[in-house]
Design a protein around this nucleic acid. Structure first.
Lengths: 223, 223
DNA sequence: TAGATTGTTAATCGATTAACAATC
DNA sequence: TAGATTGTTAATCGATTAACAATC
């Protein structure tokens, strides 16, 4: 059972960007916009914008365009930002601390309700008004506090054991900053990965592809 | 002029994951693997793996498969990880600090050579053996030290001015953690975006899509 | 050699773009 | 009403999967 059926992943990935651009238009006092005008600002086609939006409903008006505020709210609703999912953060190292302090969880449909770490030096320190708990309190915490999602900011090696615990407690959604492949271990979970190393390697590829001498490879030999 | 021509973006995005899995296989002492075996471990099709690899060359052997170490090295080379691009980090807040301390730049083809911030409290502090410089020293630093790429870990509002400076100095590659759309401002640059807010919103979408009551929308009315 | 598995072409599937009738 | 712009269908383009001859 799904709220929206058969929405293609590329469409969903574009929604946050639409949301961001519409928010900026609102800040600039623009109240209506056509798919053509929005497409030129965002660097995509008007056709794609209309196709994307019509996956969820007809939010525009012929001859007029779209209400910026109306569309902003619709997309926020489609993304589910009006929820308040309880999230816990596992790992209070540099990355975990950055995620905890940097993100506006409330604006993104979440509430951060707990932070865990196994380092005694970190336990008890306060991040974003939350006191870091010892990892061995994770199980009792989740039994007392309904937990919708877990955020993994721990090294890959630490993930399987913690994930097993959380899975056993019924947690099925994960924001995964580790390089452990959760969706291979469990089939019925929701995962959104943030692989910083992968991203940096892709940047490296793009730079070296643009700058280096062509390889004497098969593709080139075809020329 | 490109090292490899016409490689589709989806192929490039899969390369770091191949690289990661092959590294794990090496750690486990596995020396050869077939596309079929790798496909079942990674959760994709053998056909896709062979297609992807053959964009760059024929690295396998009929009847045998692929040498794990050989393929690992080939993909590392394709990604350009044997480079040593000079990178500077703009922004030494929580996120910048996490990026600076958390990433193995050297293993990803980069070297972090400078960190900049406009906060006098941060200037002079040491992160990863690098002393944080004042942002107003950016220009002279880049003139003295060849800079291939800049990492943006500053708020959106601070980006345009800094990006203009760097662009003027010839910097054309960016790892962008801000929500400022660099590729719209400059047409001839290389950008790899990390949009944490977008990622969190997509997680929110997935959770609410899986859990909420269907909307009384157009799509559902068609059923 | 026989079996296995690649590299590569062909078929299918999906996503994007174009076109246009509907309509505000 | 006339002009503008949507919603939606059709056409195109691109990516994935299937099939199989080549070959180790």
């Amino acid at each position: 059972m799904h709220k929206y059926e058969n929405i293609a992943a590329p469409v969903i990935k574009r929604l946050p960007r639409y949301y961001r651009f519409l928010g900026e238009l609102m800040d600039n006092g623009i109240t209506r916009i056509s798919s053509k005008e929005l497409s030129s600002r965002m660097g995509l086609t008007a056709s794609q914008i209309r196709q994307d939006l019509n996956c969820f409903g007809g939010f525009g008006q012929q001859g007029y365009g779209y209400s910026v505020e109306g569309l902003y709210k619709e997309i926020g609703h489609i993304l589910g930002l009006d929820h308040n999912y309880n999230a816990i953060l596992i790992g209070a190292g540099n990355l975990g601390k950055a995620v905890a302090t940097h993100m506006s969880f409330e604006k993104r449909g979440f509430k951060l309700i707990g932070i865990f770490d196994n380092d005694p030096m970190k336990v008890g320190t306060v991040i974003r008004n939350i006191s870091v708990s010892d990892l061995n309190e994770l199980e009792s915490f989740c039994k007392d506090n309904h937990t919708d999602a877990a955020i993994f900011c721990v090294p890959k090696s630490a993930v399987p054991a913690i994930a097993d615990t959380l899975y056993g407690l019924g947690v099925r959604s994960f924001w995964n900053f580790s390089h452990y492949d959760l969706s291979i271990r469990y089939k019925d979970i929701i995962v959104e990965n943030v692989h910083l190393n992968d991203s940096l390697m892709i940047l490296c590829y793009k730079i070296s592809d643009a700058n280096d001498e062509p390889e004497n490879n098969k593709r080139k030999n075809k020329d």
